[in-house]
Design a protein around this nucleic acid. Sequence first.
DNA 1: CTACACGCTCTTTGGTTCCG
DNA 2: CGGAACCAAAGAGCGTGTAG
Length: 207
Amino acid sequence: MKKAAEAFRSIGEVSQLVGVAPHVLRYWETQFPLFSPVKRRDGRRYYRPDDVRLAAGLCEILREEGVTIRGAKKQMTADRGASLKARGAARLGGDFAEETDMAPTEKQAPAPKKADRSNAGGKSAKSAGKRKANANADTLPLFPDFAQNRTGPDGARPQPSAAPRDWIRRLDDVRTGLRRLSRDDATKTHAAQLRDRLREARAGLAA
DNA sequence: CTACACGCTCTTTGGTTCCG
DNA sequence: CGGAACCAAAGAGCGTGTAG
């Protein structure tokens, strides 16, 4: 049985409609003040049709065009989300295609060709892909060339293909990770020792 | 000026708890 | 028991400070 477009929807329903995970919808909620579903007393969210359209519009520009949160915020504040709702309505189609407060000309407004990269980070679409690839790969992400060689047939020492400078760089990344992870003094000490060793190695290379 | 060190941003993921 | 909320953490790139 199909739900009317004007009906309120739970986060699960909206996530299915729009095609993003519920946690993403919650994250967007923290980033876009205009995207705020009504909440029941127990904290559960219920999305109005406009919220659904907005979410669909956000999904379109964030996921498919690579616009950053900051860029999307600009678009949203420019017209209080009207263009995003229109795009969301077009994306969802069916009953959602009606009832937008957009002028027809605005509805067909061309999408910006280039994603807004004015922010500092903003590489998550890319990094997310890399993360997935790393998760699936049977290698240590930082040392793929080592992993390739680790099962040498004659038990010979693996021969890293990376240049020494690159290896130092990678080890430094490991150190950074260690430092981030470290809760105890011992780990911090190890990280500091590794830093010193890497400095020595760099000096050795330079010499 | 260059390379390095470090912190921050952005987005996603995973784990835990709560509730109907 | 499934769905939802909440929180901590991961990971890559970028910006900035600093030492040589």
